[in-house]
Computed example of a mutant assay.
Amino acid sequence: MPPSPPGYTLPVWVAAAARAAVLALRGEPFLASQPLRLDPLASQQPLAEVPVVAAAPLGEGRAMAVARCEPGDGLDLTRGLVIWVEVRWLPELTPSEGWLQLEAGEGVGVHSQTGEICLSAFARELLEVNLGPLVEPGQALAVRVVFPSGRALAERTSNAAFGVVEGLALIGTQAEVQQSATPDQLERVLKELRQRAARSGFGGDLVVVIGENGLDLAPQLGLPQELLLKAGNWLGPVLVAAAEAGVARLLLFGYQGKLIKLAGGIFHTHHHLADGRAEVLTALAALEGVAGDALHGLYQAATVEQGLAELATSDPAMAERLRRRLARTVEERSMAYLARYGQLQMAVGAMLFDRSRTICGQGPVGERLFRDWGDRDLGGKVGGDT
């Protein structure tokens, strides 16, 4: 088998397995390397060779293929993820799906409210452009995706904060991986930051989010789209660069299980590089007055989310105070970080959300900024009944 090409996102590997499965369904020879179009919108482009592990027919009208996700040299949760794709011919076209019906198997994320497979427009378009030439006019194809370890891996993500349950979402927006922990990614963020600050009419305001989830949720809360900057995990350098570029007011908007690291002085938030979340949580809880079994329970909790939820069940007022202390400490430690670099002129606020899409903590600066920029009528909650 040829070597795995580096840096491809999960939708690419799913598309490769799906194509291999359709070839098996058509009775064609197995190809260990599938030629794929990686840009669904480009009519003229070289095909990329993406390896798959195996493919075979399963009986009349059904076939399956297997691929293994290789996202490149950077740090990535999906490294080595085994992908199964089963395909089958459908008796007729479905009005809602057209010729391609996508199904979520075990370990694939679905929307909590609808039960429908959670995938990006790019993922669907990638499947359509690569499978379409193999499907005859009038035929309809069902594609069922399975991630055998997807349910367990999803517990290490914040997908549930955006209504995605039961597994990993298929939400890549491009073919090549953009590593959030690499220096190249930081350089791209800093370049965009400087370009924004240099534009005519720049007002000095900025909302920094860590990843795609925060980027998706922030505008739903009324935070202006034009203020949003996806920083990845390099929050420390981005804070300093923002102050140097003339940003006057900056809001850190993120999942509480990520931003808690800043309260402990950890300003690169990738989980492979630094953690300490349990220690930070229990230290802040002790300062707030939590003691005994409750404090031990916070330390032993599997996640920050779980620990705070259990505390809220037994002592809601204490949990509320702890979340506020957490957000306030993020603000204070961010200002202390800036002071180390002689940057004291920028106000930094913090706004945290939990897995139920609820704003669960705001520091005093973050609360003021959200009053100025956000939609207060939303009540801090977006979508769903959770």
Rank of each mutant, 00 (worst) to 15 (best):
L311Q: 03
T282N: 03
L338F: 05
G254K: 04
R249T: 08
M346C: 03
G264M: 01
R321I: 00
F267R: 09
K230W: 02
P316N: 13
P316E: 02
R355W: 01
Q306V: 14
R325T: 11
D315L: 02
A291V: 09
L229Y: 09
E310R: 15
L239Q: 07
A263T: 01
V348W: 00
Y255A: 03
E279W: 02
R324V: 04
T313W: 05
L338I: 03
E305Y: 00
F253M: 10
Y341D: 14
L352H: 11
E310H: 12
S334T: 09
L273P: 00
I266Y: 05
G236S: 13
E288N: 07
L284T: 10
G289C: 06
A248N: 13
L235K: 10
A245I: 10
K261Y: 14
G342K: 08
P364K: 01
R333V: 09
L352Y: 08
A339W: 02
L298P: 10
R324D: 04
G254L: 07
G246C: 14
S334G: 01
T282Q: 10
Y299A: 10
A336Q: 15
E279R: 13
Y337W: 15
A286L: 09
S356C: 06
R249P: 02
Y255S: 00
Q300G: 00
T313L: 10
G236M: 09
A301H: 07
L252Y: 06
G361Q: 08
L311Y: 08
S314Y: 04
R328A: 14
L281M: 11
A248L: 15
G232D: 05
I266N: 03
E288R: 15
Q256C: 07
R357K: 14
A327K: 00
L287R: 15
T303K: 04
A263G: 14
I359L: 15
M318N: 05
A312F: 05
M346Y: 10
M351S: 08
T303A: 05
G236E: 06
T282M: 03
I359Q: 04
A245H: 13
E332N: 04
S334F: 07
L229C: 13
Y299T: 01
A283K: 11
R325M: 11
L281W: 11
V290M: 02
Q300A: 13
H272S: 13
A286Y: 02
G349R: 13
I260S: 07
Y341T: 01
A350K: 03
A301L: 08
L298F: 02
L338C: 12
G349F: 09
L281F: 11
E331D: 09
L273W: 08
A350I: 04
M318D: 00
L281A: 00
A302Y: 10
L295P: 07
A339I: 08
A309I: 05
I260Y: 04
G276F: 05
D354G: 15
G264K: 11
M335Y: 02
R325P: 07
G342Y: 03
S334N: 02
R355L: 12
E331V: 09
V240W: 12
K230V: 11
T329R: 15
V247E: 04
D315T: 08
G265P: 07
R340K: 15
G366S: 08
A245P: 14
A317R: 14
M335I: 04
L326P: 01
A278F: 07
G361N: 05
V365S: 04
G366Y: 03
C360R: 05
A294M: 01
V240N: 12
Y341C: 00
R355D: 11
T269V: 13
H270P: 08
V247N: 06
H272L: 15
G342W: 09
F267T: 01
